[in-house]
């Protein structure tokens, strides 16, 4: 008897809680991130949650796709089932962009693709309430390529085997990952635009954005190509730092003569530390706070029936082209390490 009463009480309480949640008439934004374990994503997520909490116009709920397309699909359906007014997708499934846009259109939910490759012009023509908020991913590649090109021109001895070519190792995250692809492509493009002939050593080194893996793979390549490697490009800072550990163990970074340019992306705290140490040559910042704020501000403007333009967004380094909102990367070197800091608790927008 006692148990039955308790059970009924519990049920009543559950409904009461649900009741209070739905009673609030705030618009709900459902955000699906590709992977909470990714530092950058975690920071952008925290920033978005902080901004939303401080402002209070739109409520944000989010989900983790665990780097898995099937989980993402479930999350998308779950968000639509919850009846969100805004849907933000940090998309993993780049092959299904149009399908997802069609699904959002059918549901009539304003949709923002975040930090991923862009829906096509047709997709934008197909659905009016479709937006993109993302960094110009290609810039992160260009920044690495330009930094190494500059180093190459200033240091004739940088061609260590004097073959007239810049022999490099390219550390990939995942080959199917959009950021990895453009970082690899545009870094080398920048070198070639500067008139430098290049030669890749060891093929596509897939270290899965993982520091330990990169360290082991670079150690193995060093044992074989120690006299040839002129530069190392990496799709993130963690892998670049793994490469630096392997280089240190291989006798590099002892003095100026044993310096090898290593480039990363993300400007993580440990990456910035390596810049200060003089081991990492360059990294670039895709500011997660700016991403979080740009996503929220876009929804906020739409909620208040305002047009989304560069001026109305009013975020430094963020440009609006139609329904595409672009965030610039900032190159970070030893000389401007302070530009790499950001505060995820900063809720002003």
């Amino acid at each position: 008897m006692k148990k039955t009463v308790l059970f009924i009480l519990a049920i009543v309480m559950m409904f009461a809680t649900v009741g209070t949640v739905t009673a609030e008439d705030k618009p709900l934004a459902g955000v699906v991130w590709y992977n909470f374990a990714d530092t950058f994503i975690q920071n952008a997520r925290q920033s978005l949650l902080n901004v939303a909490k401080a402002d209070g116009t739109i409520e944000v709920t989010d989900a983790d796709s665990n780097n898995d397309v099937a989980t993402q699909t479930n999350n998308i359906n779950n968000m639509f089932a919850q009846g969100v007014q805004y849907f933000v997708l940090n998309n993993l499934n780049t092959a299904a962009i149009s399908d997802i846009v069609n699904q959002a259109k059918a549901e009539g939910v304003t949709t923002i693709f975040a930090n991923t490759d862009s829906p096509s012009d047709e997709d934008f023509a197909n659905y009016d309430d479709l937006y993109l908020v993302t960094s110009r991913a290609t810039e992160s590649g260009t920044i690495m390529g330009e930094a190494v090109a500059k180093y190459w021109e200033e240091h004739p001895e940088a061609d260590r085997n004097q073959n007239g070519k810049l022999d490099y190792i390219m550390l990939y995250g995942f080959t199917w990952h959009y950021d990895t692809q453009v970082r690899a492509e545009y870094s080398i493009q920048a070198l070639e635009d500067a008139g430098i002939t290049t030669n890749r050593i060891g093929g596509e080194i897939i270290a899965e954005y993982n520091r330990g893996k990169a360290q082991e793979m670079v150690a193995a390549l060093l044992a074989n190509y120690s006299d040839d490697i002129d530069a190392i490009f990496s799709a993130n800072d963690d892998m670049a730092l793994g490469a630096i550990e392997a280089l240190k163990a291989g006798g590099f970074f002892k003095d100026e003569k044993t310096f090898i340019p290593v480039c990363g992306v993300d400007a993580t705290a440990v990456g910035v530390d390596a810049l200060k140490d003089g081991t990492l040559l360059v990294t670039s910042l895709n500011n997660p706070v700016k991403l979080g704020k740009a996503i929220y501000k876009t929804m906020w403007l739409l909620e208040n029936d305002q047009e989304v333009t560069t001026e109305t967004l009013g975020l430094d380094g963020v440009e609006v082209e139609g329904h595409r909102i672009w965030i610039s990367y900032t190159a970070i070197t030893k000389d401007n390490v302070d530009d790499a800091s950001y505060d995820i608790n900063d809720a002003a927008f």
Binding site: I206, A219, L221
Partner: peptide, 13 residues
């Protein structure tokens, strides 16, 4: 296997 195949430059695939 891990070390040797990277060492000889065999693609990760």
């Amino acid at each position: 296997i891990n070390y040797g195949l990277t060492f000889i430059g065999l693609s990760s695939y």
